[in-house]
Write a protein that binds this DNA or RNA. Structure first.
Lengths: 110, 110
DNA sequence: TATTTATATTGCAATATTACGATATAGATA
DNA sequence: TATCTATATCGTAATATTGCAATATAAATA
C-alpha cells in the first residue's frame, strides 16, 4: 500500500529505518560527502554541486535535517549546513553490531 | 517524479544509496536483526517473526537479496537466509569515513 | 503419482517519493 | 523603502514502494 506498518515494529527499528532511508538517495549521499569534503559549513553551493534544481535540493536537505543527519545555521543571508553527529551516532551502533557479528560468525550454511 | 536521476551521480553514490535504501525499512531492519540474533541461517520462520503476510516478507527478503545484503541457500524444502558480508562491507567504509570525520572536526559553525 | 509444505510471483489498490516550475519568504544592501 | 540574493514552500505530474489475496512453483514425503 506504500504505507509502512510502523506501529508493528519497535521504536529502534523504526528509527534505524528512518535514518537509513534518509541516506538512501544518491543526492543525499552526495550532500553528505560534500559536507565532509569541504570540511566546513556550506551554504547554497550545495545547489551548485548537485545536478538537481534548487527546490529539489532544498527538499533533500529538509529530509536529511528531519532525520537528524544534518543541521543548519543562519549565516547572514544564507544558511550553513553541516553534519549532525547525533543522527550518525544512532546508526553507528547498528553497523558496529553487524560488523562484530560478521567478523566472528563461523560454520554458517551460507 | 518518483524517479531518481541516477545517471547524474557516481557509481559509488548510487551503490551506497541502494544499500542504505534497502536497509531503510523497519521490516528489513527486523530481518537483519533476527538473522544476527539466531546466529544461524534461518528459513521460513522469518515470516513468523514479522507482523506481515508471507508475500510481503518474501518481497522484503528479495530486496535485501538484490541489494547484496543477504543471501539464501536451499536447505531441503526450505530456504536458508543469512547476512551477506559483501554488501555490508561496501557501506562499512562510508560510515567509518563519516565517523572519523566527526571525531576530528573542530571549529564548525554548527 | 498425489499431497503437503515452503517460498516466490502476479496483480492490484493505497500511499510515498522524486523532481521541478512558480511563488513565497526573509535577510542584506542600495 | 525597494531591490537583490538565498532558501523554502506549494502544486502537481510521473514513478516507486508497500502490502496482501490469489496463485504458481518446487522440493519432500506419503
Amino acid at each position: 500500500m506504500g504505507i509502512t506498518k510502523s506501529e508493528h515494529f519497535t521504536d529502534e527499528q523504526n528509527e534505524l529505518a528512518t535514518l537509513a532511508k534518509a541516506i538512501g538517495h544518491p543526492a543525499r549521499i552526495a550532500i553528505i560527502q560534500h559536507l565532509i569534503k569541504v570540511n566546513s559549513c556550506v551554504c547554497g553551493d550545495i545547489v551548485n554541486e548537485l545536478p538537481l534544481a534548487q527546490p529539489t535540493v532544498s527538499q533533500h536537505l529538509k529530509e536529511l535535517k528531519n532525520a537528524g543527519l544534518i543541521k543548519g545555521n543562519f549565516e547572514g543571508n544564507a544558511i550553513c549546513y553541516c553534519l549532525n553527529e547525533e543522527g550518525f551516532n544512532k546508526i553507528k551502533g547498528f553497523f558496529q553490531h553487524i560488523n562484530t557479528y560478521l567478523e566472528n560468525k563461523k560454520n554458517q550454511c551460507c
